[in-house]
Amino acid sequence: MTAASIRLYQTAEHPCGYWHDRAARDLVLDPRDSQLPSLYAGALAMGFRRSGEHVYRPYCAQCKACISVRIPVARFRPNRSQRRCLRRNQDIDVRVVAAERTTEHFVLYQRYLQSRHRHGGMDEARPSDFDAFLKCAWSPTRFLEMRRGGTLMGVAVTDCLPNALSAVYTYFEPDAAARSLGSFAILKQIEWAQRAGLEHLYLGYWIQDHPKMDYKSSFHPLEKLERGRWSNLDTSDRT
C-alpha cells in the first residue's frame, strides 16, 4: 500500500476516548474507495484499525500514547494466569458465526455498555449504533460467540484477513467479571489464528499504564509498531 493508493482524510480534533483531558485527531482512509477491502490487510500492518466502515489511526499532534500491537501467534505460549483463565472457562463453548446482529447479541451488548460505559455516551445504544460500530459491508467479519449452557456470555467481533485476525471489539456478560472473558476471548482468537495458519492477531492500540488498555501487555510475545517498524514490546516497555 502506498500513499498514492487511496485518499487520506484528517479529522477535526475531538475529545480523546482514553484520556479525558486530551484532544485527539485521526487519519481516515477514504471509506468510499473501492480499493479499501484489498488494502485493509496492509493498512493494519501500518497501524490502522477498523471502526464500522472507517479505517483509521490516531494522528494527535501532542500525544503518541496509542501504539499498535499484535501477537505473533506461532510464538505465543499462555502464561500461568492465562492457563488458569482457560481452565476457569472450560464450560464455555466457543464457535465462529456470521456477523449478524440478533436480539440476543444486542441485549448483551446493551448490558455490557450500561455496566462498563455508564454515562459515557455509549450506554444508550440502539440497534443502528451496534451496526454502525461493529459491522462493515466490505469487511470479512465474524462473531466469535462464547456460550455457557446455551446462554450467550460474550462476543468477540473479529476481522479475518489472509494472514491475520484483527480483534475489533469484545463485549461480555458484566456479571461474570471473575471469568476474565475479555482475556479468554483473546486466547480463543489466538487459537483460531494458529489453527488457520495465520501470522498475527492484531489487538488494536496499547497505552502504557492505562487501566483499560495495559492488560494487552500480558500477552507475550507482543509486537509494537513504532516509526514504521514492528519490534518486540520488551520488559522495559511494561514497567
Rank of each mutant, 00 (worst) to 15 (best):
M1H: 09
A3K: 10
A4S: 15
S5Y: 02
S5M: 13
R7I: 12
R7D: 15
R7G: 14
Q10K: 07
E13A: 12
H14T: 00
C16P: 03
C16T: 09
C16M: 10
R22V: 05
A23R: 15
A24G: 04
D33N: 11
P37H: 02
P37K: 00
S38I: 06
S38W: 04
L39P: 07
Y40D: 02
G42K: 06
G42Y: 05
L44I: 08
M46A: 15
G47P: 14
F48S: 08
R49G: 11
R50S: 12
S51V: 14
E53M: 13
E53D: 15
H54L: 14
V55H: 02
V55K: 02
R57G: 01
R57W: 01
Y59I: 00
A61S: 14
I67Q: 15
I67G: 12
R70Q: 07
V73S: 01
P78M: 02
N79R: 01
N79Y: 00
Q82Y: 01
R83V: 02
R83G: 00
L86V: 12
L86A: 09
R87T: 12
R88A: 14
N89K: 11
N89L: 05
Q90T: 11
D91Y: 01
D93T: 13
V97M: 08
V97T: 13
A98F: 04
A98Q: 09
A98L: 08
E100H: 06
E104R: 13
H105P: 04
L108G: 00
R111K: 13
Y112T: 06
Y112F: 14
Y112C: 07
Q114H: 10
H119L: 13
G120W: 07
D123N: 10
D123Q: 11
A125H: 08
R126L: 15
P127F: 03
F130S: 12
D131G: 07
D131Q: 10
A132G: 04
F133T: 14
L134P: 01
C136Y: 01
C136D: 08
W138C: 07
S139D: 15
P140A: 12
L144D: 05
L144R: 05
G149Q: 04
T151V: 13
L152K: 03
A156V: 03
C160L: 12
P162K: 00
P162M: 01
N163G: 02
S166D: 03
A167F: 08
F172W: 07
E173N: 11
P174Y: 06
D175I: 03
A176E: 14
A177L: 10
A178F: 08
R179A: 09
L181K: 05
G182F: 05
A185N: 01
K188T: 06
E191F: 00
E191W: 00
W192S: 03
A196V: 03
G197L: 09
L198R: 11
E199S: 10
L201Y: 06
G204V: 05
Y205V: 14
W206D: 11
I207Y: 09
I207R: 06
I207A: 10
H210N: 15
K212L: 08
K212Q: 15
D214Q: 10
K216E: 15
K216Y: 15
H220M: 10
H220N: 06
P221A: 01
L222N: 07
E223G: 03
E223N: 00
L225D: 09
L225H: 12
R227P: 00
R227E: 12
N232Q: 09
N232K: 06
L233V: 12
L233E: 08
T235K: 14
